[in-house]
């Protein structure tokens, strides 16, 4: 059990560091992430800028911090939306059953028919470079996991004798959800949330890297890697830094979630 504790601790440390950078970084670092200075292009680290400058002379540290804020808030927002939608629909489907359950199940099957990235790519064509298609697409791809978990667990919990007793006492759905369903669901929902969070952070960087996500000059880890890839020889640290942060975020969230979730 101790190795499990170690994994969680490493995960919490990684995620904590990135979240701290996301919250405090843009405050503490004065440099403007968009301000170019071509005379100071590709400066090495540990000079005026802690992590050097990119090919347009922008502070890499400032860009990393602003990108961290973007990725963390994006991941949290899309995973939270997916969790709310999936949990809500799952509870309603399990409680109501019948036609509601069938319709929700069909929606779930329709979403799962297509790999999530394809859905996001088609949506991205609606508004290239915009924020909302990515958010919508990733949240739509993620809600299914929450829905399936909640529906399965809630169905079996609803058969339990204590739930029947609560019903006989005249308690309503809300009470049953709060007292008998959610406490059972919360640990698994937390793990799914961490996984979804990591998946959406990775997805937004991937999409930006291949040029269909957020566009330059937006500071975003995937974007920064695209821009700095041609300069891997002159500026290796500047290229490695966004990759390292992305890795730390996703690894940390996966460790927090625990293995075997997906």
């Amino acid at each position: 059990m101790s190795s499990r504790f170690v994994r969680r601790a490493i995960g919490a440390a990684c995620v904590g560091a990135v979240v701290l950078l996301a919250i405090l970084g843009p405050w503490l670092i004065e440099a403007d992430p968009l301000r170019q200075n071509l005379r100071a292009a590709l400066r090495p680290p540990f000079g005026d800028d802690l992590l050097g400058t990119d090919h347009l002379g922008r502070s890499v540290l400032a860009r990393l911090a602003h990108a961290a804020r973007l990725s963390v808030s994006f991941g949290a927002a899309s995973a939270a939306s997916a969790a709310l939608l999936g949990t809500g629909l799952g509870l309603v489907a399990a409680l109501r059953g019948g036609i509601v359950d069938r319709v929700a199940g069909a929606l779930c099957d329709a979403t799962m028919a297509l790999p999530g990235l394809l859905l996001v790519l088609i949506l991205a064509a609606f508004a290239p470079g915009a924020f909302w298609p990515l958010y919508l697409g990733i949240a739509l791809a993620l809600w299914v996991e929450f829905f399936r978990l909640v529906r399965t667990v809630a169905r079996s919990r609803l058969m339990a004798p204590e739930v029947e007793a609560a019903r006989l006492f005249g308690f309503g759905d809300l009470h049953i959800v709060k007292r008998h369903l959610l406490p059972h669901l919360l640990p698994a929902l937390g793990a799914l949330f961490a996984f979804g969070f990591g998946a959406s952070v990775a997805a937004v960087s991937t999409l930006s890297f291949i040029g269909v996500g957020l566009r330059p000059p937006t500071p975003e880890w995937g974007n920064m890697m695209t821009e700095l890839l041609p300069y891997y020889d002159e500026a290796p640290i500047q290229l490695l830094a966004p990759a390292g942060l992305l890795f730390a975020t996703v690894l940390g969230l996966q460790l927090l979630a625990g293995r075997d979730t997906k």
Binding site: P115, G116, L117, L118, L121, I122, A124, A125, P128, T206, F209, I210, G211, V212
Partner: peptide, 29 residues
């Protein structure tokens, strides 16, 4: 398989592989 299909799209774009995933990304752009 979800990972495979998503990965094919990304890897084809990265390595300029003349496949469907590469064409898909270009069609979006």
């Amino acid at each position: 398989l979800v990972y495979l299909v998503e990965g094919v799209v990304v890897v084809e774009s990265l390595f300029a592989w003349p496949g469907i995933g590469h064409a898909l990304v270009h069609a979006v752009i």
